[in-house]
Amino acid sequence: MSEQRPRVQVGLGELVAAVPHIAGYYPSDGSLAILALDGARLGPTVVLYAQPERPMTHLDLVGALDKVAQHFISEQFTKCILVGYGLAGAELASRADIVLNLDGVHAEEAVVVDGRRWRIIGPDPISTFDLLPSPPASIINQYPTPAPTREAAQSSMSRSPLSVHEQLGRVAENELAGSKQVSLDEVTGTLREMGANIKSGRTPDVIDVARVAAFMASHANNRDAVIIKLAASSSELDAVVGLAQCARMCQESAVPAVAGAAACVGYVTGRLGVPHVSELAQMAGAENRLGQLVRFCAENGINPQLVRESLERRSKSMSVPKPGLRPLEHQSIGPPGPAI
């Protein structure tokens, strides 16, 4: 399968500049990004950082790096590139170089990013380079624009004040009640359109949001059909972004279904970073099993391919829902109910 993918060659500077796009946010000083390599092929990236309430001890670092090495080796990645952020990140990179090497993962390069410049860590005379403003489009086009910080990435997924309730309330309900029932293809098409609009700075139409959300919340098979369709391809960035925005804006009654699905699709396709996925899963609520499952996997570094394979197995046994399967019979767009 991998042979069929387009191939792009990148230099070290381009790769360093692409890290925030892959992570979903600009790592803060004191963080370390570890980019897995299989030969020259890029694999997953792991961002390692200290908990704000507790400094990272050497044992913490070694334990974390041991786990990273286990991940990489289990997926046949035996080399890596280390990118430290700030002086503390450079120190982490130097220590990680030693620990990972003992674990069987050889660091081919270690670099430090300091402000808008980067340099290779090493004993030789050091040159510093400007960070490239635009990493290769073929890479960054596959991710949303990175948030300035991890916290900003997380809060960018919280419920929007531009929700259906705030804007339309019962008008949306009337609009939906009088509208025709939608099909799966229409829903995914609308999600792609929403994502494209968001990239252009336009807010999605609340009627579209309410209609998609009602479809997904009306029957579990509808929601799962959307998940399976979007998760089948990693190139559905617009639809993933549209679905996340839909979760932020939709009617309260549909939040668990839509937010759980957005977390799942964002995680399985790898198009949304862990902060985004965690926030969406949390939005889905503690009783939403899908959201909790995805959150567990995302926060424990589980390879999304495992979830993707489970979804594929499930899709084979699932009947395709009929268009607009009773989308509004049990839906209410009225005032929000109690928190789930």
């Binding site: 991998s2 993918r5 387009p6 191939r7 792009v8 060659q9 990148v10 230099g11 070290l12 790769l15 892959i22 992570a23 979903g24 897995a36 390599l37 020259a40 092929r41 890029l42 694999g43 997953p44 990236t45 792991v46 961002v47 390692l48 950082y49 200290a50 908990q51 507790r54 400094p55 990272m56 001890t57 044992l59 913490d60 334990g63 974390a64 786990k67 990273v68 991940h71 289990s74 590139i81 073929s138 890479i139 596959q142 991710y143 990693s234 190139s235 396709t269 790898g270 198009r271 970073g273 862990v274 902060p275 995302a298 926060e299 424990n300 570094g301 589980i302 390879n303 999304p304 495992l306």
Partner: peptide, 24 residues
């Protein structure tokens, strides 16, 4: 599967590679 953890002072977040064959 190996698992990352937030139980200690270091947190790890995994991010997926782009869906293109990136050669460094």
């Amino acid at each position: 599967q190996p698992r990352t953890t937030k139980a200690h002072g270091a947190t790890i977040e995994r991010c997926e590679a782009p869906d293109v064959e990136v050669e460094v």
